[in-house]
Design a protein around this nucleic acid. Sequence first.
DNA 1: TGAAATGTTGGGGCG
DNA 2: ACGCCCCAACATTTC
Length: 488
Amino acid sequence: MIKSNDKPPIIVWLRQDLRLADQPALTAAVASGHPVLPVYVLDDGVHPLAPGGASRWWLHHSLAALTRDLQRRGGTLILRRGTSPGRMIEALAIEFNAAAVYWGRRYDAAEIEQDTALTQRLGAAGIASKSFNSSLLFEPWTIRTLSGRPYQVFTQYWRACRSTPEPNAPLPAPAKIPAPAHLPASDALDAWALLPTRPDWAQGFGPLWRPGETGAAARLQEFLEDRLCGYKTERDLPDRDGTSGLSPHLRFGEISPRQIWHAVRHHLATAKHPPDGDADRFLAEIGWREFSYSLLYYHPQIAREPLKPQFADFPWQVDAQALHAWQRGMTGYPIVDAGMRQLRATGWMHNRVRMITASFLIKHLLQPWQDGERWFWDTLVDADPASNAASWQWVAGSGADASPYFRVFNPVLQGKKFDPNGDYVRRWVPELARIERSNIHEPWTAEVLRSRDTSKSGADAYPSPMIDLMAGRRRALAAFASLNGRVS
DNA sequence: TGAAATGTTGGGGCG
DNA sequence: ACGCCCCAACATTTC
């Protein structure tokens, strides 16, 4: 008699859905009765979506967690690396006589092409393949206007999403994941050297994050219980712990938006005081992620080219020193510098401050948004191919439903409004630790600094503002106005 | 999911 | 008491 693990295995190719629960490819593979071979392939190819430094840190820990979680259920994660992941999967499938290959769908054009090509090659070799929706509430082709075109405005897009049937309930993790009798060789995770050394700039990351499915689920529960109530207003204050903190977990698929959606619904149904507007606002943030993926699907060039063609020859004032000052958090504007330093120290930046720092780079410094996008891509643990690109274009005004060009964030006013006590600034900019509340967002007016300024020599000297806000604003408005009247 | 400029209003000081 | 001015405070418009 043939034991189930003597049957040919089904390969489950995990990419950006590093979890076991609500993992339709895995569940289908287990349900088939075949042994299951979960594989992750590190893409060594040189391309724009290769994960940045901070993401590689997260990926290491996420894969370590996934390995443990699989082992607990009898499974084994196979790690491979190569410049052509599709070819790697194909070779594995043929070598191990796989019955099929399953995976969760991706939405970038190059990735779709890879997957389509793999399907064809597998088919030619007589191996079945099947793809599943593991990453989105609403896949891009399911949400269209009456005329069949994708939505260009978020509110309309999201309204359409919310009036379609609800996303499926999440699947439970398979209790047991049957392994094949013979396992392919696997790389050692440590040998991939995803973690930084010399210097280990990620030292500050560890205490803040718990990568992996268990950490993601814990973060969601804690958010629903402690922070959903009041989310609508608290989420804008960077000195508070008012956001969900789920972005990197979502980025690597340690939790699915379906799980989040249904957990929120369940929480609302059982909570004593359902925080209604708060939940809607939180789900709308998930909606922005969906909208970004729709934009990526319909505009594959979104990370490189402005969506609005008239932005193609925008008069940027490329300036390596200005970019560098912004990256290091040395612009002389406290809320900007606090944000940029929080980013480097933790791999994450509060969303309100992301908008402020991005607006400052694009509008006050007139640096190309692509430079900011690239920096965030390299330094954010949650750097997401869709959200990062769409959000930068949103700030630049070149994207869909974008911020109008004349919306220029004033970092002093934004600081006063959203960090009124200056606690956020003091936490990330130690040079300003002793500046009082009234001057914290314009420290050049503080007596302490001014008196020291004359004898400034120490490394603890906080820089004076690198540009004049009023002049910068005027320059930006003029530059953006120069686009008006052109055909779009 | 802006900010600044401009316009309007109303209370209070004061000649 | 009255008109005038100043200027918050708020509303509207413009970039």
